[in-house]
């Protein structure tokens, strides 16, 4: 059965890049959101197994989304994909419950390693 996956990034290009970086063997049902508010609306209305989350976005940023997921007790894996790659930021998102931190531009090989590591493929 396909895994419901949400790609949340304000950039169309970035959303496309993530989608294209996913291995063909990954059976996913992909939804997209262009900011944190859209993402939370989707997360609260349906079951999502995995979220690819950008940090810097209008309306509500990735940190805000992570906080809401934690607060609401939403059950999903989050992989942060960010241009802001400083160690302090990595630490912060990990503390907020993110599974992994990938820096942009996305490297497909690294993504596969992470997905395998968590048994998602």
């Amino acid at each position: 059965m396909a895994l419901p996956v949400l790609i949340c990034d304000d950039s169309l290009l970035a959303r496309k890049q993530v989608r294209k970086s996913l291995p063909e063997s990954f059976d996913a049902d992909i939804l997209t959101a262009a900011n944190g508010v859209e993402a939370l609306t989707i997360l609260r209305s349906q079951e999502i197994g995995l979220v690819f989350l950008d940090l810097t976005m209008p309306e509500l940023d990735g940190i805000g989304v992570l906080e809401a997921i934690k607060q609401d007790g939403l059950d999903c894996f989050v992989i942060v994909i960010s241009a802001d790659i400083q160690p302090e930021m990595q630490k912060r998102v990990t503390e907020l419950g993110a599974l992994a931190f990938i820096h942009k531009p996305v490297n497909p090989e690294k993504l596969v390693v992470i997905l395998k590591h968590y048994g998602l493929i």
């Binding site: 950039s11 290009l13 970035a14 241009a83 802001d84 790659i85 820096h103 942009k104 531009p105």
Partner: peptide
């Protein structure tokens, strides 16, 4: 619109790399 979005994303990523 597409070109602008693409440029913004490239610049964001470049700035992230520079900052790091």
């Amino acid at each position: 619109e597409e070109q602008r979005d693409c440029l913004q994303e490239l610049i964001n990523v470049a700035m992230g790399l520079a900052s790091d």
